[in-house]
Design a binder for these strands. Structure first.
Length: 575
DNA sequence: GCCGTTTTCGGCCCGACTGTTTTCAGTCG
């Protein structure tokens, strides 16, 4: 059984953790972390590359040794180095490393001096006052660790974008009223539109920092102030979300925003470029010796290293720097590029608004068309449509289209893909429609081979247009079902059908790397809201964020096309 | 562990905050 990329990446990260605990060479540790990140973001499974007799792509930072280890993990699923390290380091050490304020040094002390073997034991040792007797520990750290252990059980470790949006907006409003504050911007993974966010980073400008950090820590939602200095502060909100604020002078705004937007890997690569050109780049600006040569805007930071501006969503050090240097950055899709939405529900099944209400909401967003795609009969709990009810809905849509003016409702369905790969409605019913969105809603636990075959068979059906939420995951709640995405993408290209990027903030699949694979294969992506009520059409913004992370341009997006260009593409799938 | 138009050895991004250190180590981002 060859290993998946995520498993390879986890193993490499674990090597890094273990080396850290052994206080190994920090640059060696970084090399392993970097390799883990590269493998995780790779479009293709390493194991299938090797099975096809191909080699790993050449990536800066992965030399002969790491490439060998990655291959070994992919094929043999074992790594002698990892086994060896595990023998030296107790398993609990890895777990303790995840706690705040515990790094390799303190973890080592805990294990060696207090013989801690579980988090519960640490908890007891903290309560007994044994921990504070160790060098480097004191009452302060004791308190923080106790808080962290007690908090751990009931706070989600990562937050979905939609949740963060709701928490960040009022905080930003609060900060804008701080004494002497200028700009206030959310940076970090939130600005990069990562699908989940561990904490939020805010960059603010002000001539004097302390009044702003004080104002910040007095925000009513703050339950704990983890740190507060003159220019930075960290708090935890009632929701459990951690917020870091950084205050810089106005002339450093761009450099600070760049620095705190990350990603870390992107920043390291940019700083390194600067260094090669004799520059020092930090959060205060770009410096040649002591002379500051830029940093008021992000564009100045990039200009200093001879690059054009790189959009935040691309900043993962996954080739964007090389692409920028070669002037081959994609022109990324924007929300305003979307002309319609190809996955929308109504009250006919499990939606909460009528088709007319959904049309009004779509119009208000500036869209020109939506497809009504109800569930099919197999999804009984959603009161899915049978052929007769579908026929009646089609007639209703035709009547509606006659008088809603410059807007079109497309006749669609979200048909279930049954376990054997058949679709839940007969071809005769599907033939009446403008498009058929097909989805897996059952039997998520099939083997990779079976699940892939099931979907491939469905794709062969004559009216199959779009594969909805292609991995079925619910972020933080349900793992994706096991499916060979490269094979699905290949099949979609051959078949001339499309993949959905479901914009619901709980789903957001395709993932960014899968979007990029689809783009490279020439398979168009439908960014669709899957709205079940009128307010959810605006979820398209999350889909666009994910699409941008996947390097998609307007021409890669099915519903960035006006209706007259869309229709022939949809018809092409009616084989 | 990686890498090279200064180098195949000796570098490797850079700074803030905390605590218990009384001048800085550990941790974090």
């Amino acid at each position: 059984m060859p290993a998946h990329n995520t498993e390879i990446a986890d193993a490499l990260d674990q090597v890094a953790d273990l080396l850290e605990l052994e206080q190994g060479n920090p640059f060696r540790i970084r090399a392993y972390r970097n390799a883990a990140r590269v493998v995780r973001g790779l479009g293709t499974e390493v194991a299938s590359l090797l099975a096809r007799g191909e080699d790993l792509p050449k990536v800066r930072g992965i030399g002969a040794d790491l490439a060998g280890k990655i291959k070994e993990l992919a094929t043999r699923e074992r790594l002698p180095l990892l086994d060896e390290l595990r023998r030296h380091v107790p398993a609990i050490a890895l777990e303790l490393l995840r706690l705040p304020n515990l790094g390799p040094k303190r973890v080592k002390l805990l294990c060696e001096k207090l013989h801690i073997h579980s988090v519960e034991q640490l908890h007891r040792a903290l309560l007994d006052g044994r921990v504070r007797t160790l060098p480097g520990f004191g009452a302060g750290i004791e308190k923080k660790l106790l808080e962290a252990i007690e908090e751990r059980s009931h706070v989600p470790s990562r937050f979905k974008l939609a949740a963060v949006e709701g928490l960040a907006a009022p905080l930003i409003d609060h900060l804008r009223k701080a004494p002497g504050v200028g700009q206030v911007t959310v940076a970090g993974s939130y600005r990069r539109c990562q699908e989940t966010v561990g904490d939020i980073d805010i960059v603010a400008t002000a001539a004097k920092g302390p009044p702003v950090t004080t104002w910040f820590t007095q925000y009513p939602e703050v339950v704990r102030v983890a740190a507060a200095g003159d220019t930075r502060a960290t708090v935890v909100l009632r929701s459990g979300l951690q917020v870091d604020l950084r205050i810089v002078p106005e002339e450093s705004y761009g450099a600070a925003l760049h620095y705190f937007t990350g990603s870390k890997a992107h920043n390291i690569a940019i700083r390194r470029l600067g260094q090669e050109n004799g520059l020092k780049i930090n959060e205060y600006g770009v410096f040649r010796g002591r002379r500051r040569i830029g940093g008021e805007t992000e564009a100045e930071v990039y200009k200093a290293v001879d690059l054009p501006f790189i959009p935040p969503e691309l900043r993962e050090n996954r080739g964007e720097i090389e692409a920028a240097a070669a002037h081959r950055l994609p022109k990324l899709v924007e929300l305003a590029d979307l002309r319609g939405d190809l996955h929308v529900h109504s009250t006919a099944t499990d939606g909460h608004n009528t088709i007319e209400e959904m049309v009004e909401a779509a119009r208000a967003l500036g869209l020109g068309y939506i497809a009504i795609t109800e569930h099919s009969r197999h999804l009984a709990m959603a009161h899915g449509l049978d052929p007769a009810r579908l026929r009646r809905q089609v007639a209703e849509i035709d009547r509606l289209n006659a008088h809603i003016g410059p807007f079109t409702v497309l006749r669609g369905i979200e048909v279930d893909i049954l376990e054997d790969g058949k679709l839940d409605l007969p071809d005769s019913a599907l033939a009446e429609l403008d498009l058929v969105v097909a989805a897996v809603h059952s039997r998520f636990n099939l083997s990779r081979e079976q699940q892939t075959e099931r979907i491939l068979r469905a794709m062969e059906r004559p009216h199959f247009t779009i594969l909805a939420h292609p991995t079925g995951r619910l972020i933080g709640e349900r793992e994706p079902y096991d499916v060979d995405m490269p094979r699905l993408i290949d099949a979609a290209r051959e078949r001339g059908c499309f993949l959905e990027l479901n914009a619901h903030p709980d789903r957001l699949d395709l993932t960014d790397t899968h979007c990029r694979m689809a783009k490279e294969a020439g398979v168009l992506v439908s960014i669709a809201s899957d709205a079940h009520r009128d307010t959810e059409l605006s979820y398209l913004r999350f889909g666009v964020g994910q699409a941008r992370r996947g390097w998609l341009s307007p021409e890669d997006v099915l519903n960035a096309r006006p209706l007259e260009e869309l229709r022939p593409l949809l018809r092409r799938t009616i084989a």
